[in-house]
Amino acid sequence: MASAKPFDLRIEVDTYVSRLGDNFLLNSEESNELRDHFHCQVEELAKLGLSDKEAFEVSKMRFGKQSIVREEYKKIKPFGELSRYLIVAILLLFFTRIVINSFHFLSSVSLMCTLEFNIHTALLRYFDLGLKTLFVAWATWIIFRHLKRQKLNKVLLFSIPFLSLFSEVFFLTVGTFLFERYNGTGSGVYRQLFDNSSYLILCYYLFLIVLFVLLWRKEKYLNYNLRTT
């Protein structure tokens, strides 16, 4: 029989506060302040003999409805969410450039590998597709790993514009060099690789659209849930 998951106060408080400050409503200082509030109260109630779980339930009740607190915060910073959405959109734009540049660079790498290791030209397309798919899988895994923690790593976020700039410069120098060196002997196979990139970029855009719709629905669901909590 599966044992019940032990109550982890830190995780529970983090989840509750993350939900309250969803969509970047709260900055990290405000979130930390609310976490401290719950931990203080749970510690105090624990002294009266309540378990962490019971104390946290009482704390939540005393805290009040999340929807009301959210509304109060929204009144103070009406553009808070909007500006944060804008930041996300700009970061996504930078990220898209990283993906496109990486695909172009990988095309050059595929071309180089094919010619250096004598891979048959017929296999080039599949080799290239495999390489790019592996890159997409790796990038997706990195992103979801961070999302799962429900914490947006600031270092990772701030590195996106710089990585984007790096990818532009890197592709221009190394990518172009590889392409010019190997494409002459490749007799136009680069077109196939370009097609691979185009398909994958199309998939990436479709993924973004699906993600956008899902987040939109999640926002609506959360709003409904918060109103009825």
Partner: peptide, 23 residues
Amino acid sequence: WKEGSLYPVLTKLEKNKLISSYI
């Protein structure tokens, strides 16, 4: 008080420069 309602008030007071904060 509903305890959660205090924190937006504190944020508002800080934003209006009536109080200051430190960690």
